[in-house]
Design a protein around this nucleic acid. Structure first.
Ligand code: SF4
Ligand code: SF4
Lengths: 144, 144
DNA sequence: ATCAATTCGGACAATATTATCCGATTAAAT
DNA sequence: ATTTAATCGGATAATATTGTCCGAATTGAT
């Protein structure tokens, strides 16, 4: 459904949020350890998230990554997905047919659009904080 | 959502079905022309569909591909997806988190499982024939 | 029997995605 | 100032996906 990069981005964001909630900063090493992802690749992805304004980074000693309280509650899983994978999954026809023409749609168009919209709705309405605080003692859930 | 190969497979199956419904056989050249896909790549995909028992092929002059009436009505879009992409999309957690544990699920588990199940339901309950016959004069819908 | 039209199968090539490496930069601690 | 711990950014490599090529096999038509 999502790219590997996007999955790492989601997992990393959740871990970083959990750390930030207790004012701890997350280092790249910690993050890739906790979410079971390749270190250098994760680095690139975190940079993208920083550029997208979803997380922040601080360089130098005692640096690391964090998500401030505002971003935790306003940024959603959908924001992460869009930042990494773009919005194709929210827009493209799943069947790979020609772009949706609502004037003469294919037979399963209504069902399909329904699923796509529901997916968007769920990801749009799920803040990073919501997922992070719901995962009580479950860091292991962030691994594969 | 699906791989390119899978999208071609779906489009090709629909076109072949439409041809078979009027007892015409579809050649590789015709198919890739009609669904706007690379010829040789499409060839590989059609071979997979043949092996999966979704379409049949006949070699030699006046050969080509077809889908018999039984397969048209019993084989579903889900069958095509599974044949080409496997069933990861029906099974894996979309967030890329650890495999779903219903004992201690993540906060959005219920919503997510709902979407996944609905997707499976739709694709499972949509026969190739249903889509093919719904696309009346819309071959162009099979292109990109 | 030969030819032409077709699928099949294997090897190969191009591209995209995933992943690694390393020097540059930044900032705190000593 | 120097050292140390960290992110940043660019080049490179490995792998997966997508796409091409071509000869072999099959079948119908001449
Ligand atoms: S009409 Fe059918 S093929 Fe087109 S976007 Fe909608 S579901 Fe996809
Ligand atoms: S519990 Fe959450 S993370 Fe796990 S499979 Fe369900 S939706 Fe995905």
């Amino acid at each position: 459904m999502f790219s590997k990069a996007c999955e790492y981005a989601i997992r990393a964001s959740i871990y970083i949020a959990r750390q930030s909630m207790t004012d701890k900063r997350a280092s790249l090493i910690d993050i890739s350890q906790e979410i079971a992802s390749p270190v250098s690749f994760t680095s690139k992805i975190l940079q993208q998230l920083v550029k997208a304004g979803i997380i922040y980074s601080i360089r130098g000693q005692n640096g690391g990554f964090g998500i401030d309280a505002a971003a935790r509650s306003t940024k959603t899983i959908a924001n992460i997905v869009t930042a990494i994978d773009g919005d194709a999954i929210f827009i493209d026809c799943g069947l790979g047919l020609k772009e949706c023409s609502s004037t003469q749609p294919c037979p399963i168009h209504q069902k399909f659009i329904g699923i796509r919209n529901e997916l968007k709705l769920v990801l749009d309405s799920t803040s990073i904080e919501e997922v992070a605080s719901g995962l009580k003692d479950g860091e292991t859930y962030l691994k594969r």
